[in-house]
Computed example of a mutant assay.
Amino acid sequence: MTQRLSSPCPCGSDRTYDACCGRLHRGTAQAETAEELMRSRYTAYAVGDEDHLFRTWHPRTRPDPLALDPATTWIGLRVLDMEAGGAQDDAGVVEFEASWSRGGGSGVLRERSRFERRAGRWVYVDGEVAEQ
């Protein structure tokens, strides 16, 4: 992982990586909402943190093996919609667009992701994906 702790967080929160998703990646904090977990997972893709993705993926839907594409650069995140997923909820949905570039091309991945609390922690279950 090459993200500097004092750099802006890739999730676009206007906080540093250390104060935002970095603390979730290190395991010193847990996501309080489905959106916070989604942002940390986007950032994990952006910085190459497969361990965080593995830990936050529901075991029944997690691919084996989990492999990131090193040729893909994640360049922007925009949250579009949320349903539940708050600090008091047990399930939630977050819809987002994530911009990427790869080998001279670029695109936008749009996903409507489902999250659940499992043993008190938010986990990613699955999502409906549409690349644009």
Rank of each mutant, 00 (worst) to 15 (best):
Q3V: 02
G22K: 04
R4A: 11
G105P: 04
T28E: 08
S40L: 08
L5V: 04
C9K: 13
T33R: 02
V47F: 14
S13M: 08
R23D: 02
E128H: 02
C21D: 01
D81W: 00
Q3C: 07
G86N: 09
P10G: 00
L24Q: 07
Y45L: 07
T61C: 00
V123I: 05
A84C: 09
C11M: 10
D49M: 08
H52W: 05
A119R: 14
A98D: 11
E36Y: 02
A34F: 10
L80R: 09
T61K: 02
M1Y: 06
W122E: 00
R117L: 14
E128P: 00
E128K: 01
D14R: 13
T72W: 05
V79K: 03
E32Y: 02
G103A: 15
R55Q: 09
R78Q: 12
R41A: 13
S106C: 02
D49T: 06
A19R: 00
V47R: 06
R78G: 07
G120A: 15
E128F: 00
E35P: 03
L5H: 07
A29C: 07
S13K: 05
A71K: 05
A84D: 09
S7M: 05
R117N: 12
A34D: 10
P63F: 03
R121S: 15
V129N: 04
V93I: 13
D89T: 10
G22P: 01
D89F: 10
R26E: 14
A98W: 12
P8A: 11
L66S: 14
R39A: 06
P8Y: 04
M82K: 14
P59K: 12
A98T: 14
R4N: 09
F96A: 03
D51V: 07
Q3K: 03
G86M: 02
P70W: 06
A71H: 13
A67P: 01
A87L: 03
W100M: 08
G105F: 06
L5S: 12
D18M: 06
T2E: 13
V108G: 14
G105Y: 10
A130T: 14
